[in-house]
Write a protein that binds this DNA or RNA. Sequence first.
DNA 1: GGTAGACCTGGACGC
DNA 2: GCGTCCAGGTCTACC
Length: 315
Amino acid sequence: MAIFTLTARQPFNYHSVINSHGWIQLAPFQFDEPTSTLAYTLRASNGRVMHLKIREAEAGVSVETKGRLSKLESNELQEAVSWMFAMDADYSSFYKAARKEPNLKKAIQLARGRVLRSPTLFEDVVKTIFTTNTLWGATKNMTQKLIASFGDPLTFALNGGLSRQRNSTVSKSEVEGPVLRAFPTPERIAASSPEVLKELVRVGYRAPALHQLAVRVASGELDLESLKRSTMPTLELRKELLKINGIGPYAAANLLLILGRSDFIPVDTWALKLVSHEWHEGKPITAKEVEKAFEKWGEYKGLAFWFWDWKYSGG
DNA sequence: GGTAGACCTGGACGC
DNA sequence: GCGTCCAGGTCTACC
């Protein structure tokens, strides 16, 4: 067994990160409520699949995984979790701008700002496409089916030496439950076809967009991961994201938030409801009204919207 | 630049 | 069990 402790830039609140959006409900994330443990099935670049158990620790998180890890695997694991929890993100200027706003008081108190990410931007783009034009239940289904159909199964490393061959099947008795699989690589999805994706993953009209994305990433034509550390202006970054089939204004804003850029608001039907009940007595409004309501927040627009203390809670 | 309609899935509902 | 309706963003054609 290997255990690591990762320290975050302060302030940091484990629960604020995992509850920042619905990502913990999407495989290969699993959340155990009683122990507040976030599990994630991670595939290292050498093909080894590890099951991580992430817990709150002093000033950061602890990560536990079975078996002995090589230096490369250990580095990749720590790098992945650091990215997932945005360990080095700094929200002090947002808190400074928000300190006089009563509806952001809670956000400051709970150190909100970090948005839980997947280890790769590819995974987050795919999941974001799965959130468009559908209900949350279908998003969960599509993600689950994609992983079940194309994800590599958990690798067992015994005594640090014997590891199961990549892509092999793990029996249920071995893992005492459903087979755990990592999120599929772009290569695995690219090797399939839009027709198969539609049939197996039930992604409907999204199949060509999903397949094209996987092909572009697998071939190296689209280097999504480089966007994680990009210094290009947010407007340009948004343009790059909008070039991806299936990514429109809502999805691009969502991905920008994941990338730590908050100049845009992901306006979906829920956002329209929130703003409508907050300032327009529940009357129908357009995306323009949402943008207008948060105009003064400038580069913190997305954060102010995302962590606002809303009156409306559904119904 | 704004708008209408098609694109799919899955859940809810009525019969 | 079957058919119908509806919710949900993106894309394209059209004005």
